[in-house]
Write a protein that binds this DNA or RNA. Structure first.
Lengths: 132, 132
DNA sequence: AGTTAATGATACCATAATAGTATCATATGT
DNA sequence: ACATATGATACTATTATGGTATCATTAACT
């Protein structure tokens, strides 16, 4: 099972790469060369990151992407949230009201505890800490 | 994202149900009534559990499934392992040698730490502890 | 003004994973 | 013999994932 999906992984790598030289503008083509991620796919991801306020974008010749905020303020969880939705380990059939234990599932509590831990661990990871 | 897939969830529920009265034999039909899981699907799952030594099975009229070992000795991780494979959070593209940081990914260590924690938490959950 | 190089938006497609069904064979108690 | 159960396995439908393609828009630079 994957904690981090391909989307998130690609996006994170792109963000980290851009963060290393945060003044510059990086067009997709340049990122593709450096990161070996399929161009059209990466482009889609970057557009999303832009819409979500992680990146700035500039159209036209000489344009590209740059960070919209300092790398200290971009967290792994931000990117995970964008591409993977709300982090939740508890998506067994319970949620759908199928399970007879919907309310008092004996596993639920333990899983929520694990979830809390993982969330805490992940939320401490800023892009800044990944580019050293 | 799901820590526990549908397969595991269904299988676990069936095992717990059987464990509550561990002397009895439960045919699939009876489990279906009680657990509201699609019959043919559950049957397939139970066959796997039998092949993996979690359940006994008895063919023919009056047959059905029973636990192959005491509920104290059946762990959530056993069932997860059967239906979800080796537990591993670290399946980002790294493993495939695509990522330039294959060896010294700054995230890897943190994820491995999380993985270790989750594994420890899950491995402490026996079926016996879920049926009270 | 025209060309080139970039993103914006969005529709499309291919593959794999997931969830579930169907069928035929075999065993067993009555 | 018959009814009821599992064993094995092939099949199918749906969804998620990963990736492409296309056309529109914007901006810099002749």
């Amino acid at each position: 099972m994957k904690l981090i999906t391909r989307d998130t992984d690609y996006a994170l790598r792109a963000v980290c790469f851009i963060a290393k030289n945060k003044e510059r503008l990086y067009p997709v083509s340049s990122l593709v060369k450096n990161l070996r991620i399929p161009g059209p796919f990466l482009r889609k991801l970057l557009q999303v990151l832009h819409n979500k306020g992680i990146l700035n974008s500039f159209k036209g010749k000489g344009g590209g992407f740059s960070l919209a905020k300092p790398p200290e303020d971009i967290f792994l969880t931000d990117i995970m949230h964008i591409f993977q939705g709300e982090f939740c380990l508890n998506e067994c059939s319970l949620g759908k009201g199928i399970c007879p234990h919907t309310k008092d599932c004996p596993l639920r509590e333990r899983i929520l505890r694990i979830e809390k831990y993982v969330r805490k661990e992940l939320s401490s990871v800023a892009v800044a800490s990944l580019i050293k």
